[in-house]
Design a binder for these strands. Structure first.
Lengths: 209, 209
DNA sequence: GTTTAAATGAACGGCTCCGTTCAAATTGTC
DNA sequence: GACAATTTGAACGGAGCCGTTCATTTAAAC
């Protein structure tokens, strides 16, 4: 289907390697320096590409930004295959999941990405929405399903899995999330304490009986 | 002490009304459009002031931004006098506190402010740090003290008030915090459910016995 | 009224940047 | 090799903006 369409155009085809080099360079610049402070010329230099090529491919600075966001969201969708659920007691499993989520969300690139998306959301609400759908909402649904499953098996007793999912993740991130966003870096020990504390409180509220 | 110093200078004094008009206008522009996208000329127009006056007062675009951040942080420090603790059962009090915090934090101006501070923190970590100290860390300390007090009176049983404070606030904000940051607006009903849920889980974990 | 300093308006230099144009070079496909 | 489309480099117009200069006006304090 797609291959049939590819063969239509005569002449030199667009260089997809260059295209993704452009998006990569753009992502780096945009999410490090912000939309307004990033210049197309700089992106072109980073990608070893002519500025005109960028305009041929994307036409617009905003469109390039959108493409960068789209790629990053796509990455997120890919990364988040928590399908391999861990073994062990429910307490152990919650701990592992909490740590996995935490590791995923506290990566500096992720913090950077979130900062920029939030900032640009002010002018382009659609961007924030796309991010929510590709990331947080997806994750919440998946985790809620896990909780519902555990609840059905009698390992937990959760009346509202969606709410419970939020509560667990929120506690695990705790204030560390906020601190990272504003440049402070919690110690590894604090991180552990937050996750362990989240598991404790969560089980106190939702363990059967 | 200060009045004595005031009388020192002869000639026309600097117009403090204009000064605060400048800071107000700058705050609005900076926190709506970001640092890079805000022009001094526009701020000058908003404040009905000459551009040169701004440079006389602040000398620099960054300094003006710093002044705007400082003022906003000062406002936060002022607003946050949760000294009047509510009456009623511990459950009722937690509910009231949760709603007060929530109302304070979910105001659109606050969301906007946080977005911008986070974005600028990338280049100026000191700004993020100043915000953390003026806002979140202050609030956390105050709330933890409340919890410790209630714990000492036997109304709660909390081994680690600082951690517990984080947990409660994090659950009360839940994912709504994140959603607002990315442009989605949770319904009033969702907000209520999150606060009520936070109180439930919190008490399940930390009620005496 | 005199003094002293702040505020204003206009203009400027210098810089950055977006987006476009054009001719020339490159590179795939038939 | 001929075709057709992309890529490149350079240059340009136009715009916006920072920060400064300067002569002029305004206004408080003595």
């Amino acid at each position: 289907m797609e291959k049939a369409l590819k063969k239509k155009k005569p002449g030199r085809p667009t260089d997809q390697v260059k295209r993704s080099a452009i998006i990569d360079a753009a992502s780096r610049r945009f999410f490090e320096e912000g939309f307004a402070s990033t210049s197309i010329e700089q992106v072109a230099a980073d990608a070893s590409v002519s500025k005109v090529t960028i305009y041929n491919h994307f036409g617009d600075k905003r469109a390039l930004f959108a493409a960068a966001v789209e790629q990053e969201c796509e990455k997120m969708r890919g990364y988040f295959n928590l399908s391999e659920m861990p073994e062990g007691s429910i307490r152990e499993r919650l701990n592992v999941i909490g740590e996995a989520m935490f590791a995923f969300l506290s990566r500096p690139e992720m913090v950077q990405f979130e900062r920029r998306i939030a900032a640009e959301t002010e002018h382009e609400p659609a961007i924030g929405h796309a991010f929510l759908q590709a990331g947080p909402w997806r994750m919440k649904a998946a985790f809620a399903e896990f909780l519902a499953h555990a609840s059905a098996k009698g390992e937990l007793n959760i009346p509202d899995p969606l709410l419970a999912a939020e509560q667990f993740v929120s506690m695990a991130k705790g204030m560390g999330d906020l601190e990272r966003r504003f440049g402070a870096t919690p110690t590894e020990e604090e991180n552990e304490r937050r996750i362990a504390g989240a598991v404790d409180v969560f089980l106190a509220a939702y363990a059967p009986r």
